[in-house]
């Protein structure tokens, strides 16, 4: 292989060059312009054609260039989904662990009846007085609205009305 004449000239600053010759006499004494690498015959006359062929081949395959990019995009999307799934899993675990212990226990039948009674009393008070129920309803409700609310809540409206 012939080394083309350098356009860059070998004007190494003198002090730099002298310093190198002092510190590396063996290396600096070697013939640096002889290139020992063998290049196959006619390589440089064939090479431009092989580059052109590869360019044309890639142009013919529409996904030749985009496929690696699509792969990269796919990998990124997959990575993001994995991160989201892991975050969701960790958050749901934390939420479950943070729940008060009594909520995860079972109610005795007596406790359940007490709970139902208190719900009915609350509904009764709402129908009779049309009052604002602190902490649950933050606005004055009309009787009609209260009835709709109770219907949705599954209360026994007929029984409540009969009691009235």
């Amino acid at each position: 292989m012939s080394i083309p004449p350098s356009k860059h000239n070998n004007m190494v600053p003198k002090d730099d060059s002298e310093q190198l010759e002092r510190s590396a006499p063996t290396l600096m004494g070697l013939p640096r312009h002889r290139d020992p690498f063998v290049v196959p015959e006619r390589f440089f006359s064939r090479f431009p054609l092989s580059v052109k062929d590869r360019i044309l081949e890639q142009d013919r395959r529409p996904f030749g260039v985009t496929l690696p990019r699509l792969r990269l995009a796919g990998a990124l999307v997959f990575g993001m989904l994995m991160i989201m799934a892991a975050t969701y899993f960790l958050l749901s675990r934390t939420a479950f662990e943070d729940q008060p212990a009594e909520l995860s226990g079972t109610l005795t039948s007596e406790e359940w009846l007490l709970y139902e009674d208190s719900e009915l009393l609350l509904a009764d008070a709402a129908v009779n007085e049309g009052v604002q129920i602190a902490g649950i309803v933050d606005q004055e409700l009309a009787a009609e609205n209260v009835l709709t609310f109770l219907e949705l809540d599954g209360a026994y409206i007929d029984e409540l009305l009969a009691e009235q």
Binding site: M1, S2, P4, F44
Partner: peptide, 23 residues
């Protein structure tokens, strides 16, 4: 582009070959 390749291929090849050794 063909002209460009012909103009620079030897100098670039020389550098790359020195870096990777194998033809």
């Amino acid at each position: 582009f063909d002209l460009l390749v012909r103009q620079y291929q030897e100098r670039l090849y020389n550098y790359v070959r020195r870096m990777v050794t194998d033809h």
